[in-house]
């Protein structure tokens, strides 16, 4: 199984099995789309860790997803710099145009929106990540153009 093989490789980089937990959760998230009870158990099993420990760790971190996500994940920053540069208007826009609420997913399952704390792009604020692509200097026009390229 690909999943176990990847985890096995990760294990090589750490002196103990728990060290591999964060990267393994990313692998599971990729495999399952989000971190369900089942995926916690799979990780726990692979790393010989208690499932509760795995869940406790996973839920501490904001970038693990604990519910199903749309095909594309919009991670839009609204922290101070982005806010000052107009991020709030973009949040409103997403709500109006796609019916997309922070933390929610569009009905067609195309986009999910997560509000981010600073993503380190304050010089090009407002900024966002769509999946792992970085987009900055957003405004109402640009954000729509960009999002329309994600199907």
């Amino acid at each position: 199984m690909e999943f176990l093989k990847e985890i096995e490789e990760i294990l090589n980089r750490y002196p103990d099995r728990q060290g591999a937990l964060l990267p393994s959760l990313y692998v599971a998230q990729k495999e399952y789309g989000w971190l369900s009870q089942e995926s916690y158990e799979a990780v726990a099993q692979a790393l010989n860790l208690p499932p509760a420990t795995v869940k406790g760790v996973a839920t501490f971190y904001a970038m693990y997803k604990h519910k199903p996500m749309g095909r594309h994940l919009i991670q839009l920053c609204t922290n101070v710099a982005c806010m000052v540069m107009g991020a709030e208007r973009l949040v409103d826009l997403l709500k109006n145009k796609y019916g997309l609420e922070p933390g929610g997913t569009t009905e067609d399952g195309r986009f999910s929106l997560v509000i981010m704390e600073c993503i380190g792009a304050c010089d090009k604020a407002p900024a966002m990540l769509v999946d792992t692509d970085f987009h900055a200097d957003l405004n109402e026009k640009r954000i729509i153009e960009i999002l329309e390229s994600y199907k």
Binding site: A52, T53, K55, F60
Partner: peptide, 25 residues
């Protein structure tokens, strides 16, 4: 649960003021 009993049955999930003590399920 973890350090003396060794059952590792409960954990804190979430963080900050959204932290809750929970069993796995």
């Amino acid at each position: 649960c973890n350090d003396l009993q060794g059952a590792y049955a409960i954990t804190v999930t979430g963080r900050g003021s959204h932290s809750f003590v929970e069993p796995f399920s």
